[in-house]
Design a protein around this nucleic acid. Structure first.
Lengths: 200, 200
DNA sequence: CGTTTGCGAAATGTTAACCTTTTTCTTTAA
DNA sequence: TTAAAGAAAAAGGTTAACATTTCGCAAACG
């Protein structure tokens, strides 16, 4: 898998996303542009870009002339709706991909799952969550490109604010192996079933 | 309905969105920050904010160090998926709202439809499309607040790039009246049916 | 003749200073 | 004593200058 070069802004965005997913930045925490600028040793410009991005993703809430703060988790009805939406998207992706994946792509997914396993064993739950997201992101992007990713991402990232380190059973890794194995065998139905089982 | 005060950035974003929906800015058109700054008589800062926002909405595509250009319409498979997702969200909203709307809220929706009718008669199709979006946005926001809006908006705005002024039959206005009437009678099933009929 | 290298223009990325709004604390008057 | 008014501080909004990157084009080389 080719290493991606990330812009300064994207790297900062990733770090703040991690802080929110890990719970280090709790809901309603106010983000101060100047503090963040000092923390990452850049000026306020790039920080503002990052805040705008995360706001559009739903992780932050911004108010004019007041600033941004960490958003509250989704209420449970919307959480349920989000699960439905996410299933629809990933099922679509599975239908497109089953039988059309290269060996290299399958290997990439295996590698991500190996990574998940490692983080699970070390009890690094934030990293585990990120690997989980990366796995799904990988095949959603393959199936529908940036367009589909743009629809999928805000749904998933917001969902993930809810179960911080709760449902981290050892089954999680296996569920992902099931998905890849179904892909490997070109079995769209099995892939969809495995995905349905994994998303909850 | 109370008039909303919009920030400079939001007003500029609305204008560029209009240009894209109307087709004035065709897909693949490159957006130049300096030109836009001059056009709206602001500096490049706010323009960059707007470009970031519209990129997150899926209307633009940005590349590091290269700039932003108008995105291509969704391929038809993704268009179909988007319709499904949008239906799911708006059906959820209808279920939440039916029977719980105030007279004032119903009047607001009537007003938006009157507005649609006017634009239809004057053949102002871009404005008609915007009013159409505003109508759905109104009740989606009522049902799920900003959180739901954040999930809904990118789906709809991207869909709207596809049928520019194509399906502007006179039925469109009536379909919306049907939705409000179902709301008025607190009939969730009828509201959902009307919404299903309208979204295509 | 085709490919590569490097220059230069144009566009984006970043910064720091300045402006405006919001908030908070203090003063003052009822 | 309380509450309104206003000043001061803090934070976000905007700007313009500066830095870096990209890309086309032309010269040089194979």
């Amino acid at each position: 898998m080719k290493p991606k070069i990330l812009s300064v802004r994207d790297q900062i965005a990733d770090l703040i996303r991690s802080d929110i997913i890990s719970g280090e930045l709790a809901p309603n925490t106010k983000l101060n542009e100047i503090q963040l600028a000092e923390r990452f040793d850049v000026s306020r410009g790039p920080i503002r870009d990052v805040i705008l991005k995360l706001t559009k993703e739903g992780l932050l809430v911004s108010k004019n002339n007041v600033g941004a703060s960490v958003n509250a988790p989704l209420p449970s009805e919307l959480q349920k709706l989000s699960i439905d939406l996410r299933k629809k998207i990933e099922e679509y992706a599975a239908k497109q991909l089953a039988g059309h994946l290269t060996l290299e792509q399958l290997a990439d997914m295996d590698a991500i799952i190996d990574n998940m396993q490692e983080h699970f064993e070390r009890e690094e739950y934030t990293e585990l969550t990120k690997a989980d997201i990366a796995f799904h992101e990988y095949f959603v992007e393959l199936a529908g490109g940036e367009s589909l990713l743009n629809l999928w991402y805000p749904i998933v990232i917001r969902m993930r604010m809810n179960y911080q380190r709760i449902k981290t059973s050892s089954k999680l890794v296996d569920e992902h192996r099931d998905i890849v194995n179904a892909f490997r065998e070109g079995d769209a139905k099995a892939a969809i079933a495995a995905i349905r089982k994994n998303i909850k």
